[in-house]
C-alpha cells in the first residue's frame, strides 16, 4: 500500500485531510485540522501499522525572529534586517513525522493552529509514548498546549524561565545571571 492509497482511504473518514502545498522534501506531506489529529493518528497506528513516531515539533510562522530574544548579540542584526517573507502568517504549525517500520513508508503531517493564547492541539500520548517528552518540549519552547497530556510541564528550561523562547517575538528578560 503506498502513501497515496493510505491518503485516499483516510480522506474518506476525515474530510479535512489535505495534501500540503509546501511539501517537505522526499516526505509525502499532508495537512490535518487540529481536532482530527488524534483520530487520524489512531487510525494510522491501528490500521496502517504506523508504529514509530519520529518527530513532533513546531514552527512559528509569524515573521523574522526578534533581536530582543538574544541578550547582547551582534549576530542577529543581519537576519533581523530582512523584510518579513511573503509566507509570514500568524500561526503555529505542529509537525509530525511518522514511519511504518514494516513497510518503510514515512509520512509528514502538519497541523496549523492560530497563534493566540490557549493555542492547543490534542496530544498523542497513549498512542505513541515517544510523544511524551517531545510534546513537553514543544510546550516549553512555544507554549502550545497538548490536550490530554498528563504531565505538561517545562522540561528543558528552568522554572525561572519567563516566556516561550522559540517564539519569534520572544523578548529576553535579563535575570540575575545576565
Amino acid at each position: 500500500m503506498t502513501a497515496e492509497e493510505i491518503f485516499t482511504k483516510l480522506q474518506a473518514s476525515f474530510s479535512g485531510l489535505r495534501i500540503a502545498e509546501a511539501q517537505v522534501k522526499e516526505y509525502p506531506t499532508w495537512t490535518v485540522p487540529a481536532q482530527s489529529v488524534r483520530a487520524v493518528f489512531e487510525q494510522l497506528h491501528s490500521e496502517f501499522s504506523f508504529g514509530y513516531l519520529d518527530v513532533v515539533t513546531a514552527t512559528d510562522w509569524s515573521g523574522p525572529v526578534s533581536p530582543k530574544g538574544y541578550p547582547q548579540s551582534p549576530a542577529v542584526a543581519i537576519g533581523a534586517a530582512a523584510a518579513p517573507p511573503a509566507s509570514a502568517r500568524d500561526v503555529f504549525e505542529v509537525v509530525y513525522i511518522v514511519t511504518a517500520l514494516s513497510t518503510g513508508i514515512k509520512l509528514c503531517l502538519r497541523c496549523e493552529i492560530p497563534r493566540k493564547e490557549g493555542a492547543s492541539v490534542p496530544s498523542l500520548y497513549g498512542i505513541f509514548m515517544a510523544a511524551d517528552w517531545q510534546e513537553r518540549e514543544v510546550y516549553d519552547m512555544f507554549g502550545i498546549h497538548f490536550e490530554g497530556h498528563p504531565n505538561l510541564k517545562r522540561i528543558l528550561t528552568p522554572e525561572t524561565q519567563q516566556g516561550y523562547p522559540l517564539r519569534k517575538d520572544y523578548e529576553h528578560i535579563p535575570d540575575k545571571f545576565d
Binding site: 519520529d54 514552527t59 543581519i78 537576519g79 517573507p85 509537525v95 515517544a130 517528552w133 517531545q134 518540549e137
Partner: peptide, 24 residues
Amino acid sequence: FAVSDGSMNPYRMHVRGPSFINVA
C-alpha cells in the same frame, strides 16, 4: 528538520536528538 524562508539564516532548525527520546 530545516525550514528556510530564502534568507541567509535558517528560519527554523529542529534537532531530533536520539538521546533525548531514549532517556524518556
